[in-house]
Design a binder for these strands. Structure first.
Length: 644
RNA sequence: GCUCUGGUAGCUCAGUGGUAGAGCGCGUCCUUGGUAAGGACGAGGUCGCGGGUUCAAUCCCCGCCCAGAGCUCCA
């Protein structure tokens, strides 16, 4: 064997001569003992592989250590194997499904007779630490299909996957201790690397995500390189639990969902309603200032409308059943667009009229599957901050620019960061691909011109047009679905939405479906979690609570309350129970300002002001100063004070 | 919709094959308070709904309703 050495290019540009048959791990050793020790995996020509992977051709190689972002998924995937090893040790009959790394950890699916309990998870976790302590090597092996069939003869799920391989495809298996898995890898060198692993939950999951197939039992877990990272992640989970809008909303009396009314149907209590009302008023004022026109449309429509739109064909599963009226069939509207199109088509429109922007806080009804309902975030009746913008093709770019301006203006007010995603043409797209792609390029240019960071979801667009999505990032870094600006070439065809051009000929308008906040339900639900229930003053249901030190000072306190009310401030006087009790209650209810009035304050016309979250710290101030301070907070929609 | 878990006072939960408890909240009274829970007494329950087993069911069994976790992340 006298084949030539392999030319290995390292990230710093150095070229290493390696003997044929060398592995990625050998490269790490050749670079230095420190790296060899820290190495977890390697990237060969862009593909992440295990250190045991032989190098076949000249290649660019980068060795991955715990510090590299690629290391975490490798670690977690290996953790999934260790989990499967443990489960198999304890329940040898458990058939194994898939066990990938996922966003925040990993899972492994098992086909077992009896679902796992939390106690099972503890047992598995203990077993896993033993496997980690044994430091079993992850050994990679290439096999052909026939060998693989024999290796996995007891694992029907693996066999099913196996049969999907082409005969010429490379099939690899990974072995650690007693456990063997059909797996493309890569893996860490040995189980000893998995020092911080935790199992989190177990639940059913369909084999291959298909609800027509058998249900497997999925165990979720997570793994980290460092203990502190694990602790931080678990803390974040705790924090998210504390912010759950369903719990906070109960404590703060914002909304409820009653069985007697129906699943997924939100009852807005006075305190929740005032939050929503305040947002809606602000939103409508902002839209009018941005040259939108408000419209109102009914919540039902003749079914024929949805035949024209095509919803009946593609969306019927998500629509409530029809109501019959002497041969006409009516549907609760699942979206507002067809109604808005009908308004557009009441007149012959000129190219000079466009863009036309019809906005409505439109209440829609969708039949969501019961298992997907979730507090205010997924409901069956919701009010959408909806608008349909009718433009000429040459106006698309400018209109998207305006939409991005408006988004920025709104989301800043609520203290949200956001990410932008551009979705491009899918295979199933209708119409002329050059029109679709041309429009997509226009959107891309708008984003580029604004210097915005964005991700591209290739093929993620709807079949009728590309879109830009705005995902908001909340106070603890979670992403929520926010705005979406969807271009539509299809509905103008279906509804004959035209305008007369300067050439005196009719042309098809282009529709932009857009929502900025999404639905009021989801937006307010998200805000509750974002603010942890501590709404900024302009949104707080009760902005000020006034506390007379004793009944003696109720009258003086009430006169201050009257002044606040006159100024348009939401205020309550609380005079029962002890002062300490009332202060505690005000804090619990997350009221932004407390004002205490006793002998001193009553005599010199002041108030002792205590801000939410500020503890004992208080400012004694004149009553008019107090009012103007609160008004300033409301007018500026301040999100920084008082403490959230 | 499917799998699992749960449903007991307005809320959070304990409990038992012999028709039920706590804390908070609520009501009344006492206390008239100076910065995160003053005290006493009291009202409040078809133990989710329907059926079955049993002398007896809130508890055991079956069905249903509702809630929670999960059901995309592909060897």
């Amino acid at each position: 064997m006298s084949s030539e050495n392999l030319q290995i290019t390292l990230p710093n540009g150095d070229v290493l001569q390696m003997e044929p048959g060398s592995t990625a791990g050998d490269v790490a050793v050749a670079i230095g003992p420190g790296l060899a020790k820290a190495a977890i995996a390697a990237v060969i020509d862009g593909a992440t592989v295990s250190l045991g992977e032989p190098i076949r051709t000249d290649a660019a190689i980068r060795v991955i250590t715990a510090k590299d972002p690629e290391a975490l998924p490798v670690l977690r995937h290996s953790a999934a194997h260790v989990l499967a090893t443990a489960v198999r040790e304890i329940q040898p009959g458990a058939a194994i499904g898939f066990g990938p790394a996922i966003d925040n950890g990993f899972y492994y699916d098992f086909d077992v007779e009896v679902p796992f309990t939390p106690e099972d998870l503890e047992v598995f976790e203990t077993k896993m630490s033993e496997i980690v302590a044994e430091d079993q090597m992850f050994k990679r092996r290439r096999v052909n299909k026939e060998e693989a069939r024999q290796l996995f003869s007891d694992d029907p799920l693996k066999l099913e996957r196996l049969e999907e391989f082409r005969d010429d495809e490379v099939i690899t298996v990974y072995e650690n201790g007693p456990f063997l898995d059909l797996c493309k890898g890569p893996h860490v060198p040995s189980t000893g690397h998995l020092r911080h692993v935790k199992l989190l939950s177990a639940a059913g999951a369909y084999w291959r995500g298909d609800e027509n197939r058998q249900m497997l039992q999925r165990i979720y877990g997570t793994a980290f390189q460092k203990k502190e990272e694990m602790e931080e992640y678990l803390l974040r989970l705790e924090e998210a639990k504390k912010r759950d809008h369903r719990l906070l909303a109960k404590e703060l009396d914002l909304y409820s969902i009653k069985e007697e009314v129906g699943q997924g149907l939100v009852l807005w209590h006075p305190k929740g309603a005032i939050v929503r009302h305040t947002i809606e008023e602000y939103l409508k004022a902002t839209l009018l200032a941005h040259d939108y026109e408000l419209v109102y449309t009914p919540q039902i429509a003749n079914e024929e409308l949805y035949e024209i739109s095509g919803h009946l064909e593609v969306f019927e599963d998500n629509m409530f059943p029809a109501m019959d009226d002497d041969g006409s069939r009516f549907r609760l509207k699942p979206m507002n667009c067809p109604h808005h199109f009908m308004i557009y088509s009441t007149q012959t429109r000129s190219y000079r009229d466009l863009p036309l922007r019809f906005a409505e806080l439109g209440t829609c009804y969708r039949y969501e599957r019961s298992g997907t309902l979730h507090g205010m975030l997924r409901v069956r009746c919701f009010t959408q901050d909806d608008a349909h913008i009718f433009v000429r093709p040459d106006q698309i770019g400018e209109e998207y620019d305006r939409l991005l301006d408006l988004t920025d203006e709104l989301l800043k007010v609520f203290g949200y960061e956001y990410h932008i995603a551009l979705s491009t043409r899918p295979d199933k797209a209708i119409g002329d691909p050059t029109v679709y792609d041309g429009a997509t390029d226009t959107l891309r240019r708008v984003l580029e011109a604004r210097g915005m960071d964005y991700v591209v979801d290739e093929g993620g667009g709807a079949f009728y047009g590309p879109k830009i999505d705005v995902n908001v990032v909340d106070a603890i870094g979670r992403e929520w679905q926010g705005g979406t600006f969807q271009l539509d070439f299809l509905m103008p065809e279906r509804f004959g939405l035209e305008y007369i051009g300067s050439d005196n000929q009719p042309h098809k308008a282009v529709v932009i479906h857009r929502t900025l906040l999404g639905s009021m339900e989801r937006f307010v639900g998200g805000l509750i979690e974002h603010y942890r229930g501590a709404f900024p003053t302009w949104l707080a249901p009760e902005q000020v609570r006034l506390l007379p030190v004793s009944k003696q000072w109720v009258e003086s306190t009430q006169s201050l309350a009257d002044e606040l009310l006159m100024a348009g401030i939401r205020v309550k006087v609380a005079s029962r129970d002890t002062l300490g009790y009332r202060i505690r209650e005000s804090e619990t209810m997350k009221i932004p300002f407390m004002g205490v009035v006793g002998e001193r304050e009553a005599s010199d016309d002041t108030v002792a002001v205590r801000k939410r979250g500020a503890g004992k710290k208080q400012d004694v101030m004149g009553r008019s100063d107090f009012i103007s301070m609160i008004l300033r907070d409301i007018e500026t929609k301040s999100i920084s004070s008082p403490a959230i």
